[in-house]
Write a protein that binds this DNA or RNA. Structure first.
Lengths: 175, 175
DNA sequence: GAAAATTATTCCAATTTGGAATATTCTTAA
DNA sequence: TTAAGAATATTCCAAATTGGAATAATTTTC
């Protein structure tokens, strides 16, 4: 399945709010994003490990009385750039819109990002292109299965575009 | 992520059309379902191996001149029952509708299954329940992020229900 | 006071993923 | 006609993902 999500950017988004240890990031994630994105504790640690290897984050151990030691992660400049690139790039698959675009909306709000309308406009644009490519059915003979598939793609894309336009109105008042 | 797909049922569906070897199943899958569901060759073989262990399929080696030997898989009675149970059960997550329901539609057509309206009705029913649970916003204070999330869920669910109703009309003429 | 939850990270094993490898034959393009 | 690329079929391979459990101590709940 080539529709892979990019959870590392969600974690980078969390670290944009300040350094945190893995457990804390899991709590933050669960509290704020669990409705549409699930990440287990071990996933988060596995991701952080890989991200540190890729120089997106750095970590520093911190001793703690009466509690296990913490490993505090901070975002690097590379990580910041990667995150900003991600958030200002459109989501390519409607299937992932629910998860990735919702995460982006969350960080727009949380980080009080400027240029939020850019994010909406680009996303609307790419979806309208997709819709355009879908529209001309070429009048070719389609069985009921092909009709259903075609119809589904159009319906979901149209619905997503309308939703984006709606959201843009109430996000634009603020960002 | 708890929205796991069930590719083994798609493979069972293919074997409902008759015994096939893995490579042939991959071709069949690619030709017919690649637009919405991707399975690699190694995934197919890994799945078949597990399915054989679970008694959903059996295999028989077949020697071949001038070509690598084949391993022909056939569906068992257990496999048939599992497949029929799957196809007549609703998809629980809107996110997976695109993939799993489309696969079901494909097999309805390919296997000329009866009672197709049951499949549609049950799917519409469960989505309308979800919609109902979403609808009362309790008038509680929502920030723009919660508004967006709520609005998205409603939009995509509504769109899916409408699409299902539309599909039902042209599938019902035949099955 | 006892049991359960919390704090934090690592360990663990099974599954999934995305190819490559294998060896031969067939097909295509120059 | 020849060389390169594709096809045939299955298994191998290593990294990534997944869904917990383990660890040991403290704090919270009943």
């Amino acid at each position: 399945m080539s529709f892979k999500l990019s959870p590392e950017y969600a974690l980078l988004g969390i670290l944009m709010t300040g350094p945190k240890h893995g457990y804390e990031m899991h709590s933050y994630f669960s509290s704020n994003m669990d409705q549409f994105w699930r990440l287990s504790m071990s996933q988060i640690y596995a991701l952080l490990k890989r991200m540190e290897k890729n120089k997106m984050v750095v970590s520093k151990g911190e001793w703690q009385n009466n509690r296990p030691a913490k490993k505090i992660f901070s975002i690097t400049q590379t990580g910041k750039e990667g995150f900003l690139n991600w958030i200002y790039s459109p989501v390519n698959h409607v299937r992932n819109l629910r998860i990735e675009f919702m995460a982006k909306l969350f960080f727009i709000k949380e980080l009080k990002l400027k240029r939020a309308t850019d994010i909406f406009d680009k996303q609307i644009e790419i979806l309208q292109e997709k819709l355009h490519l879908l529209q001309p059915p070429k009048e070719k003979i389609m069985d009921e299965f092909q009709k259903a598939l075609h119809s589904f793609k159009i319906a979901q894309t149209t619905s997503a575009i309308e939703w984006l336009k709606e959201c843009k109105t109430f996000f634009s008042c603020k960002y």
